[in-house]
Computed example of a mutant assay.
Amino acid sequence: MSLTLVQAWKQARQRLEAAGLAGPVIDARLLVEAAADATRVDIVTDPQRPLTPDQEQRLADYLQRREQREPVSQILGRKGFWKLMLAVNDQVLTPRPDTETVVEYVLRDFPQHAPWTVLDLGVGSGAILLSVLAERPAARGLGVDISEEALAVARDNAASLGLAPRSVFLRGDWTTGLADGNFDLVVANPPYVATDVIETLEPEVRRYEPRLALDGGPDGLDAYRRLAPEILRVLKPGGRFAVEIGYDQKVAVEALFREAGAEGVHTLPDLAQRDRVVTGLKKPLETSG
């Protein structure tokens, strides 16, 4: 006898609970919805709808992969971030709610209809850049990443969201080759995990996410040492920056940006009230009285 939607959800939840996974209720629902071509509303309003044999097999495959700690986002090939649904794979970091703190800052401080320019360093899936462009229709953006595979994901996301005309993606080593004073805003979510900490992370991260996007060197600060002066270089006078940090890196990263000449440097908390985003600006041009 075929499983119904509600039976499939219950059994999937029990299986993930038995595997000791965090968040089994949500994971089970997402996997059932994807396997059965169903929605959350379908599970509530039509719980006795049977799964086809192909759908049951697909769900079994999904659950086996999740038991092996493969992230749901990679199993399904997509992840929600801000107001967007983004394609993801094992070549990019899975976008996380913490990173939405960067988007919140940008949308608060940058006018909706002004034609300003944004640079996203280490663009990955395009999560930050595309979320900003989707909310600011007059803005244009450049995303840079050293990984051509990551750039392919970002380009596909830009195209599927209708944002390709206002976004460009280039392979590069941070700001190398970019001219001085070109951008109103620079954002980045650089690698900030100390090398010897990576092996202590959850399997979903250490096994399935690109080490290039995680490894911040011996103390996790290698990227910031390079980025602080370079971000100030490519910003226009008065331009702003917002970079994600690890929860314990506020003092060190703020110091690096102040040493590079940034003004107004401070740190914003994420929803869990952990230090998450260091912001500031490049000194504006002097104006005559």
Rank of each mutant, 00 (worst) to 15 (best):
V118A: 11
F169V: 10
L142W: 08
P137V: 04
G126E: 11
V193T: 08
S147Q: 05
V193E: 06
E148I: 06
S147T: 06
L178P: 10
L185T: 01
N189A: 09
D180H: 07
T195K: 01
A114Y: 04
L161S: 00
V144Q: 10
A139M: 14
V144S: 11
T117E: 10
I128E: 10
R140E: 10
V168H: 15
V118P: 02
A188P: 03
L161A: 02
G162H: 12
N182P: 08
L170T: 09
L151W: 14
A139R: 03
N182K: 12
R140H: 09
A152Y: 11
A179H: 07
R155Q: 08
E149Q: 14
P191W: 01
G143R: 02
R155Y: 00
V186G: 00
N157V: 13
E135M: 06
P115N: 05
A138V: 01
A150N: 14
V193M: 06
S131K: 05
A154Q: 15
S167K: 04
A138T: 07
L130E: 04
G141L: 02
Y192H: 05
S160R: 15
D145Q: 00
N182C: 14
T195C: 01
A164G: 01
R155A: 09
L185E: 06
F169M: 13
F183L: 12
V118Q: 00
D145M: 00
G177R: 11
L151E: 10
E148W: 06
T195Q: 05
A114V: 09
E135K: 15
L121Y: 14
L161D: 04
V153I: 12
P115M: 02
E149F: 01
D156T: 09
S167V: 05
R140K: 07
G181V: 10
V193L: 08
A127N: 07
A152P: 11
I146N: 10
E149T: 14
T176G: 12
A159N: 07
L142F: 07
V132M: 04
A134R: 11
D180N: 09
